[in-house]
């Protein structure tokens, strides 16, 4: 027996490792109350300060680089004007950034006031580690009252929902991820369907062939899924295809949120039972 074990030691080891990995994966596939495990909490706790630090350093560096390039351009014209120009341009750039941030935050604030639920502002810290999934990390976590399943929105509409929570950070599954699905309806005629992510766009699934859906129709949340409140904009219909046969039509939706420029978001907090 021992000889047999020794002979197939490598193969047994490989099979054991793969089985253990599969077991861990299938365990995490189960939808429980708490999906963020100890390993994830530990890693996120360790990396959180670094990520926030890098974000600050990158912003400072890009600000400095912008000012330096501006300096090189103006030096050719006049040394005195350079100095004045640089200061004015830097000030203008800073003010413009402040104004843009102000506008974004004002929109978020207006949106927050419209919502019956209390909302927690958060900043996007990092994106997904791969190009295959659509998730982002935000700088608010369990200590701030964030829980798994909470909806995440911006002024333009729905952004996603919380899937992992650590003490100071949370991960948001964006609506464009292929594993995301939201109960939605067409605002104009109340046709119901499910919006599923396709990477960059969404599909409005289960819309019956005979339903009147047109390009430009606004898709909003129906409130049926139990995650998102009713009436939040999800996207605009950009393509409708009705084949000769088949029960449903193919409807492509462009999200109202520009996910490549996602900076500040609101987490809609639910009341604790």
């Amino acid at each position: 027996m021992l000889d047999l074990l020794r002979k197939y030691r490598t193969a047994l080891l490989a099979v054991t490792l793969v089985l253990a990995a599969l077991l861990l994966y299938s365990q995490n596939l189960r939808q429980g109350e708490e999906r963020t495990n100890l390993f994830e909490k530990l890693v996120l706790r360790v990396t959180a300060p670094l990520q926030i630090g890098v974000m600050t350093v990158c912003e400072t560096f890009s600000d400095w680089l912008g000012h330096y390039l501006w300096l090189v351009d103006t030096r050719k014209e006049n040394d005195r004007l350079l100095e004045e120009n640089r200061h004015l341009a830097a000030e203008l750039s800073r003010l413009r950034e402040v104004r843009l941030t102000n506008e974004r935050l004002q929109k978020l604030l207006d949106f927050r006031e419209q919502q019956a639920l209390s909302a927690l502002p958060a900043q996007v810290v990092t994106e997904d580690a791969t190009s295959w999934f659509r998730t982002v990390m935000i700088d608010k976590g369990r200590d701030d009252g964030v829980r798994e399943g909470m909806p995440v929105v911006v002024a333009e509409g729905v952004a996603g929902r919380i899937i992992r929570v650590a003490a100071r950070q949370s991960r948001v599954l964006l609506i464009t991820d292929a594993s995301s699905a939201i109960a939605t309806l067409v605002q104009r005629n109340r046709t119901r369907g499910v919006c599923r992510g396709r990477g960059d766009t969404l599909n409005f699934d289960f819309a019956l062939r005979e339903k009147d859906i047109e390009v430009g129709d606004l898709i909003i949340t129906s409130g049926n899924g139990g995650v998102f409140p009713k009436g939040l904009p999800v996207g605009t219909v950009v393509r409708v295809e009705r084949e000769e046969y088949g029960l449903f039509q193919v409807v492509e939706v462009m999200p109202t949120v520009d996910f490549s420029r996602l900076e500040e978001v609101l987490v809609l907090l639910k009341e604790e039972p």
């Binding site: 080891l13 490792l17 995490n28 996120l44 580690a129 594993s179």
Partner: peptide, 29 residues
């Protein structure tokens, strides 16, 4: 080696899982 490398690669995958995708353990396997 098989054991050390295998365990470490599983860990690397789990580390990637912490920052990517929806299902923990996917990159691990």
């Amino acid at each position: 080696t098989w054991l050390r490398g295998g365990l470490f690669c599983w860990y690397l995958g789990c580390l990637e899982d912490t920052f990517a995708g929806n299902d923990f353990g996917l990159f691990g396997i």
